[in-house]
Amino acid sequence: MTTKFTPDHEYIRVEGSTGTVGITSYAQEQLGDIVFVELPEVGKVLKKGDEAAVVESVKAASEIYAPVSGTVTAVNDALNGEPGMVNADPEAGGWMFKIEVSEPGELDKLLDADGYAELTV
């Protein structure tokens, strides 16, 4: 299992050919209280960089982009009732969707934990 990051503050935790996507702790802190999360539909085919989800804070809406290309296989429906989970537990309970990775080579171009940490100092 390995976790990669985008410069837009998404993470993707890869197990086999499936990645679990959410936003980093740094991102949730920047956004503030999340009040609504719009998730993609299961089965949706995304290209790397496509808008995949939207998180709404009290003040503004922010797009969440697909870190890699693939097909959405599951979404975290718990966020519909409890969007604040993105703040409280962004990298576990606050995950947003799972994606079946279609271009594994794209993962290599993402940041590793150290590279991402450098971005957010």
Binding site: D33, V35, S57, V58, K59
Partner: peptide, 12 residues
């Protein structure tokens, strides 16, 4: 300041 560390919801 748009918000302080406690955040908009708590401030509101």
């Amino acid at each position: 300041p748009v918000q302080y560390p406690t955040g908009i919801m708590a401030e509101h």
